[in-house]
Amino acid sequence: MIRIALGMLQLTGLCLFTYGMNGLSEWLGLNIPGSILGLVILFLLLKFNIIKLKWVEVGGNWLVAELLLFFIPAAVGILQYKDLILGSGYKILIILLTSSSIVMICSGLLAEKLATRKEKAEKNEDAVFLKSNN
């Protein structure tokens, strides 16, 4: 019960923080969405110990765990472009599928090569760390 109340409080805090970041970005004329600015600033605040992890952890983890839920209305929004999809949908699909496949495979394989090379070079204390967190 206390955990739920705490989570709700943190959730509200994160919403207000995001709202503030949107304002800040606009005020500074930054052209960056408040969510991205907020992500970077919250990270820095955590990193420099100005905000403690436990102040945001419960509510923040809720949000992160249900991330997909927040994309659903946007995905339903494709409905508004029914004509576009029916008209050029196959071309769009070919482009998106081909290019994302190539990009995924190239960037993934490159990162795999680079990361394993580094791991091998430095022995694998990190690999153990990563595995234990899965």
Partner: peptide, 20 residues
């Protein structure tokens, strides 16, 4: 559904937690 979309922004901000 816009109330759900509204949470996408704070959820993006919350990605700072795994980052940290």
């Amino acid at each position: 559904s816009k109330w759900i979309t509204a949470l996408l922004q704070p959820a993006t901000v919350a990605l700072a937690i795994p980052l940290y």
